[in-house]
Design a protein around this nucleic acid. Structure first.
Length: 642
RNA sequence: GCUCAUGUAGCUCAGUCGGUAGAGCGCAUCCUUGGUAAGGAUGAGGUCAACGGUUCAAAUCCGUUCAUGAGCUCCA
C-alpha cells in the first residue's frame, strides 16, 4: 500500500499509509489539547468524521469545539444517543424516524403508541448519561442499500426502509454506537463522551415527513453543548424569552386581551395598548406623508364579484371567510386591501405625468388561520396591515423599490431594528406575466438592493405567482428572526382590473403595481416590539411616559395642578395619589415600566418643581415643570429620529 | 385541522383516596400621612371552561365541545 501526505490547514504535514484514519492524522499533527477539541474534519470542504479512511493526499481542516459545525455534529450525535436511550428504556417496539440537529439543538421522531411524559424524560436522560459516561465510539459502515433494507425490514423499521428506498442510491452509510444502529449520513463525534451537557426540552407531535396524511410521530426536542456553562446560558436565554413573552407582558401591562367570548385570534386593545398603537400609527402616517405617500381608507367588505375579478377567490379563497347576504347580493370580508386601492385608481383616468402614485392605508383585514396556528398577537385572524400600493411605469420600478427600501429600513431602525436578513424571491414554476416582465422587474429589485448597498440572499422560485418579491426578516434583541416587511411586484392585478394610464404617446399603458408592507401587521409588529423591548418601551411610544407619585395627602392639590399642566402639554401622564407609602407606589410604577416617576413632596410643592426617578432606579435632581416638559419633548424627538 | 398537555377568584397557583373550594397578589372599607421596589386590620369576590354520563355523592372518574400551550403545517 502506498503512502499519502496529510497536512492540517496546509501547515504541518505527515506521511501515512493510505487508508489511515483521519483520527490518526489528527493525533499525529495536533497537540493533545487541540486533538481533544477536534470532533470532525473538513476534507475538500466536506465535513467528515474522524474515522474516515484517507485514500489520497489530503488537507484536513479540524472542526473543533467552539465552532458552529462542531456544535451541529455534537447535537446530531446526541440525537442518536437519545434514540439509543429511548430504545433501551422502552424497547425496540419503539420505531425511529429521523433525528437531525436543528438551530438550537436537535430532535428525534419516534413512533410509539404511549405518549412520552416528563417522567419518561428523566429515565431517558439518566440512560443517556450512562451511555455518555461509557465513551462509546461512533462507528461508520458502508453497506449496500439492498442489505440495509433487508436489515431494517427485519427489524420493522419501516421509516428507515422508506428513506433508503427514496434515496435511490446503491450504498448507504450506517452509524453505530453501542446497541443502536442508524441510517445516517453523519458525521458524528468520535465517541459519546464528547457530550458534556444536554437536556431534553419537550415533546410534540410531528407528522412523518411533515405531511399530515402520514403517521403522527412523537418528536422529542433537546439541546446539547460541549460544556455545562453554555447549556446553562442557553437555558437562561429560554427563561429570558419566556419573561419577554408578549402574551404575558401584554396581560401584565394591560395592552391587549383575547377572549373566548369574542373569538380566537381576535385582538381587543386595552387603553394602554390602543395608545401604544396610536403612537405607532401616527409615526407611520407622518413618515409616509413626508415620503410623498397619500393616505387612503377603504371598507372592510366588498361584493363577492370583486374577489372573483381579483382572483382572490380562486387563489386565496381558503383563507377567506364565507360570504354574507346583503339584499340578495353576496359580500365578503377582505383578506387584502389591494382591490380597493385599485378601485380608487380606476375611479378616474391617469396621465404618465402623475406617475408614480403612492397610496398607503392601515387596512384591517381578516384571514382564516387554522386553529393550531393562532398565537397571541403574532398570528391572528383579524389584523391591520401597514399596506401601500405603488403604481408606476416600468422605468420607474427600480427607483420606487429603492425608495421603499429606504423608508422601510428607516422605520425599522426607528423601532430599534437594525439587523436583518434580506431575501429576493424569483419566479416560481407557476406564474403569470411575460418572461420579459419577470426578468426586468427581478433585475430592478436586484439593482435597487445593490444601490442601497444591501446584502441579500436569492430564494430561487419562491416568488409569488404574480411577481418577484423582497422579504426582510428583522432580528430582535434575543437574536430571533421575524419576517415583517415584504415588497412584491405584481403583473397580475393591473391586468385583471384593466388598469391603464395615458402615456406620452397618447396611448393606454398598463402600470406596474407594487404591494408592500413594512411592519407586516400592526398586531404582529407590536407583538415583536413587546418582546424586543421586554415591555420597556422607548419614551416616544411608551403609552405612559410619567406618573405622579405624591408622598402625603398635603400635596394632592399641587399634583392635580401639574397633572393638568402636563396633559395640556401633551405629556402622557398618570397620577397615583392613593393613600399608600412612597415605596409601594414606586414599586408599582417600576413594574409598569413607566419611564419617569415624578416624586412630589412638600419640597417640590414649595419650590414648584418635580423630582424624577427613572425606571432603571436612577434619580435626577428636581427640575421645573417647564424644563421637564421640554426634556420629554426633546427625548421623544431624538427617539423618533434615531 | 392533527398529536400530546392544560383549563379552579381579576392575576399567579394549591386542592391527597370522589364527600358541593383554598392561598398570595389585586380590589373595597377602616387605621396609618409614611421621601425612592410591598405598613396593618377587616371584608367582598367562584355554576371549579361548557354540555352530557357514571355514582348515594363529581373540581376530582368517563365522553363530547370550546379555548389555551408545545409542535406538525401555513404565513403577515
Amino acid at each position: 500500500m502506498s503512502d499519502i501526505k496529510v497536512s492540517i490547514n496546509n501547515g504541518e504535514s505527515t506521511i501515512l499509509p493510505a487508508g489511515s484514519l483521519a483520527k490518526t492524522a489528527v493525533a499525529e499533527l495536533l497537540s493533545n489539547k487541540q486533538r481533544k477539541r477536534t470532533v470532525a474534519v473538513f476534507i475538500n470542504g466536506e465535513v467528515v468524521d474522524l474515522c474516515t479512511p484517507l485514500t489520497e493526499d489530503s488537507v484536513l481542516t479540524p472542526i473543533q469545539t467552539g465552532s458552529a459545525e462542531a456544535l451541529s455534529v455534537l447535537r446530531h450525535s446526541t440525537a442518536h444517543i437519545m434514540a439509543e436511550a429511548v430504545r433501551d428504556v422502552f424497547g425496540t417496539e419503539v420505531k425511529v424516524a429521523i433525528g437531525p440537529s436543528i438551530e438550537d439543538g436537535f430532535y428525534y421522531d419516534f413512533d410509539r403508541k404511549e405518549p412520552f411524559t416528563p417522567e419518561d424524560f428523566e429515565k431517558i436522560e439518566a440512560r443517556m448519561t450512562e451511555i455518555i459516561r461509557k465513551a462509546v465510539p461512533f462507528t461508520r459502515s458502508k453497506v449496500s442499500s439492498e442489505s440495509a433494507i433487508e436489515r431494517f425490514s427485519a427489524e420493522g423499521e419501516k421509516y428507515k426502509v422508506e428513506l433508503i428506498k427514496d434515496l435511490g442510491v446503491p450504498t448507504v452509510s450506517l452509524y453505530e454506537q453501542g446497541s443502536f444502529s442508524d441510517l445516517c449520513r453523519g458525521p458524528h463525534l468520535p465517541d459519546t463522551s464528547f457530550v458534556k451537557a444536554f437536556k431534553l426540552l419537550r415533546v410534540a407531535g410531528a407528522y412523518w415527513r411533515g405531511d399530515e396524511k402520514n403517521d403522527m410521530l412523537q418528536r422529542i426536542y433537546g439541546t446539547a453543548f460541549f460544556d455545562k456553562k453554555a447549556l446553562k446560558k442557553h437555558l437562561n436565554a429560554l427563561e429570558e424569552a419566556k419573561k419577554r413573552d408578549h402574551r404575558k407582558l401584554g396581560k401584565e401591562l394591560e395592552l391587549f386581551t383575547i377572549q373566548d367570548e369574542i373569538g380566537p385570534g381576535l385582538i381587543m386593545w386595552q387603553p394602554k395598548g390602543a395608545l401604544l398603537r396610536k403612537l405607532i400609527e401616527d409615526y407611520w402616517k407622518d413618515a409616509h406623508y413626508q415620503n410623498d405617500y397619500e393616505l387612503l381608507y377603504t371598507p372592510h367588505i366588498a361584493r363577492q364579484d370583486l374577489w372573483k375579478t381579483s382572483g382572490h377567490l380562486d387563489f386565496y379563497g381558503e383563507n377567506m371567510y364565507s360570504s354574507m347576504d346583503i339584499d340578495d347580493v353576496q359580500y365578503q370580508l377582505k383578506p387584502m386591501n389591494c382591490p380597493f386601492h385599485i378601485g380608487i385608481y380606476n375611479s378616474r383616468r391617469w396621465s404618465y405625468r402623475e406617475m408614480p402614485i403612492r397610496w398607503c392605508e392601515l387596512g384591517t383585514v381578516y384571514r382564516y388561520e387554522r386553529a393550531g396556528a393562532l398565537h397571541g398577537l403574532l398570528r391572528v385572524r383579524g389584523f391591520t396591515q401597514d399596506d401601500a400600493h405603488i403604481f408606476c411605469m416600468p422605468e420607474q420600478l427600480e427607483d420606487e423599490i429603492f425608495n421603499i427600501l429606504d423608508l422601510n429600513l428607516q422605520i425599522l431602525k426607528t423601532f430599534g431594528f437594525d439587523k436583518y436578513e434580506i431575501y429576493l424571491s424569483t419566479r416560481p414554476d407557476k406564474y403569470v406575466g411575460s418572461d420579459e416582465h419577470w426578468e426586468q422587474s427581478t433585475e430592478a429589485l436586484k439593482l435597487a438592493l445593490e444601490k442601497k448597498g444591501l446584502a441579500y440572499t436569492i430564494d430561487p422560485g419562491e416568488g409569488v405567482f404574480y411577481g418577484p418579491k423582497i422579504d426582510i426578516k428583522i432580528k430582535d434583541m434575543l437574536g430571533r428572526s421575524w419576517q415583517c416587511s415584504t415588497i412584491q411586484v405584481d403583473f397580475n392585478l393591473p391586468e385583471r382590473f384593466e388598469m391603464t394610464y395615458t402615456g406620452k404617446d397618447n396611448q393606454d399603458h398598463q402600470p406596474i403595481m407594487i404591494h408592500r408592507a413594512l411592519m407586516g401587521s400592526l398586531e404582529r409588529f407590536i407583538g415583536v416590539l413587546i418582546e424586543h423591548y421586554a415591555g420597556v418601551f422607548p419614551l416616544w411610544f411608551a403609552p405612559v411616559q410619567a406618573r405622579i407619585l405624591n408622598i402625603t395627602d398635603s400635596q394632592i392639590d399641587y399634583c392635580n395642578e401639574i397633572y393638568a399642566a402636563f396633559r395640556k402639554a401633551g405629556i402622557r401622564i398618570e397620577k397615583d395619589l392613593r393613600n399608600e407609602k412612597l415605596n409601594y407606589k414606586i414599586r408599582e410604577a417600576q413594574m409598569a415600566k413607566i419611564p419617569y416617576m415624578l416624586i412630589i413632596g412638600d419640597k417640590e410643592k414649595d419650590s414648584h418643581t418635580v423630582t424624577l426617578r427613572l425606571r432603571n432606579g436612577d434619580n435626577i435632581a428636581d427640575m421645573s415643570i417647564d424644563d421637564f416638559i421640554e426634556k420629554i419633548k426633546q427625548e421623544c424627538e431624538d427617539g423618533k429620529n434615531s
